[in-house]
Design a protein around this nucleic acid. Structure first.
Lengths: 352, 352
DNA sequence: TATTTTTTGAGACACGTGCCTCAAAATCTG
DNA sequence: CAGATTTTGAGGCACGTGTCTCAAAAAATA
């Protein structure tokens, strides 16, 4: 057994270097370098020979050594909205953590808060960046033409760009976040399953319905309820606009208007305000309440039974995944292979 | 703003090297090397001065350069049981994937199948390993004194050892896997929540109850049911021992003995056999069925409604996490900081 | 064939750290 | 104080790749 293996691996170097490549292809190290780094002035024939040698030897470029030679280190920026809820605070905290986790890999992350609602300031910031200052940007911003443009121009300047949490378009290959439509559907399924033997109305509370993310969640939620739980009836979204007084008013109004509310879906990533209001309003004990995103507040609410479930995306996972993805882009790992998908997490009291 | 920052960072080098350290501490690079790598023959006073300089400059050792100098590369082995179910196949596939994901980091993984049930063969294999062949091992094996011993001896030989999925002891700091007690409780909560308005018996099917993992799951499950869903009654575990005929017999017997079965919990990581048997037995449509681990089979069952929920640990995540953890141990990252916890995932039809 | 152009090779240096040797300096011991 | 011992410094080579320069070889063109 061991003999057979050694016979196979005998001529196959364990970790072939560019030197070995050169020898195998019958060219010089300079030429190998030209091929590896896509410089021109090499005949196709020669390129092929080198590529064949790469295949034959199973050569893998030593990125560490390469980075050392280039004295490359990675400087990433997380461009996040200024107006922040608890979920955003969570993200910020995870970035700080990731910073010293990745320090050993020569990766350094900064945070830049941008004024959302103003697409111009976002794209302005993005175009102010230059390679040398920063090697990559993770961008959390609502989808607008300006932002899309700015992202394109970043890539032209050889800066890695990665839509983060807020998706820019369904077709975009490089992005880190969850499918909001499925997230909404998951909230619906969880709610519906728990209320399977009852019928009534479901209140839906949002911060605003303008963003693509909100729309998708709502769509997914409604679709799941209507196809699988026809005994439940979903009410129109209540939009709080982040305003507590307004929230109090519309929630109270809805509760008096409908006396058959059996479930509540808090759709926005900031669940604190609506939940605090609901608590004061003395709902029946068996009203099923579900919200998005894990924050110290929602976590607590789940523990104490004020909330029955959370549909979440893991902030730490999002951050780390974004960093690894950015590094992958910079390293030009095209065959990034198994994409590390961000899962839609369901949190109950038992798996916090 | 920028001025203030630059004033601060002016004297602070962006990426100080050992050379900078030496200058700052007023010693030679040789001495810095002695301190950094814990060689002796350095006066305490000098050690302190170097450490102070490390603090002051915010020095972070360039692991890439260090690995290059040592021509260190990481060879990890996953020691997995021989007798495998679909979940194990999943793990194996993820290891293969991870292999080319981590190739750029000079990490190479092998798989070694060990005969479970025979603690001696496991520890025999582990003691046959030597540094140079392998830098770290992820071990999936039931807890026995022999295995614990072998792990200790691995560490003495400077080989990183990491219990994998099967925990060795609750107190063990270094391990990758989930809390099985919480996993069981989560299955219970999901089941209970869906059956909140009904009462009856819950069938529990296991492969065997000898391992710590099974015990913990069952314990967590029972505790959650009895404290929060007293209208449900959990039956004793049916042990299939991986034998299809036996499984058919005991499941059928249980179904005739109890006519009030409202839920079924398939506890073992191999859910296929029990579920196939159950399908033939024509259960009422609203029987809530829950199982563990995502495999092509369980996934399909969930999609087609033969299963209502899966409590899972993400195989890819487990594998990647184990690899990163092993690398962390080898690199001597003591302040490993934010441990990348493996989440207990709840999979429903909507978030597959 | 002679000349220009393209392609290739040889060699050097750099990146930051590990690891080695040998000598010099500092400290301790008798 | 001399000698033994411990501590420190200076310097060099290695790791694998990137990036230069300059010359040589090969191919294309006139």
């Amino acid at each position: 057994m061991t003999e057979m293996q050694s016979r196979v691996t005998q001529r196959t170097l364990l970790h072939p270097t560019t030197k070995d490549l050169a020898r195998a292809a019958g060219v010089s190290r300079a030429t190998v370098d030209r091929v590896l780094n896509g410089r021109d002035g090499v005949r196709q024939n020669t390129v092929d020979r080198v590529n064949k040698a790469i295949q034959d030897l199973g050569f893998v470029r030593n990125v560490q050594a390469a980075n050392l030679a280039k004295s490359q280190s990675y400087r990433f920026v997380f461009a996040l909205p200024k107006s922040g809820d608890l979920f955003l605070e969570e993200i910020v905290a995870r970035i700080a953590e990731a910073n010293d986790l990745f320090a050993a890999d020569r990766i350094w992350c900064d945070i830049h808060r941008i004024d959302d609602n103003d697409p111009h300031s976002i794209s302005g910031y993005l175009s102010s960046l230059s390679r040398g200052d920063v090697t990559g940007v993770a961008i959390m911003a609502p989808e607008t033409p300006q932002v899309r443009d700015a992202i394109m121009r970043l890539q032209e300047r050889d800066i890695a760009a990665l839509p983060f949490i807020s998706n820019q378009a369904p077709l975009n290959a490089d992005w880190v976040g969850v499918d909001n439509s499925s997230a909404g559907a998951t909230a619906a399924l969880l709610l519906g399953q728990s209320l399977r033997d009852r019928s009534g109305s479901v209140m839906v509370i949002a911060e605003s319905m303008t963003s693509r993310d909100s729309m998708e969640r709502r769509l997914g939620f409604d679709q799941e309820i209507s196809t699988h739980f026809p005994r439940l009836h979903t009410l129109p979204s209540l939009e709080t606009y982040g305003n507590t007084e307004r929230a109090e008013k519309i929630i109270a109004a809805t509760l008096t208007a409908y006396d058959d509310i059996v479930g509540i879906y808090v759709m926005s990533s900031e669940a604190r305000v609506p939940l605090e209001i609901l608590e004061d309003l003395q709902l029946p004990n068996d009203t099923f309440k579900i919200a998005h995103e894990r924050t110290p507040f929602t976590e607590n609410a789940l523990r104490s039974g004020k909330l029955d479930g959370i549909v979440a995306q893991d902030a730490g996972h999002l951050v780390r995944s974004a960093i690894r993805r950015l590094k992958g882009i910079v390293d030009k790992r095209r065959s990034s292979g198994p994409q590390e998908r961000i899962r839609i997490e369901i949190l109950l009291r038992t798996n916090l």
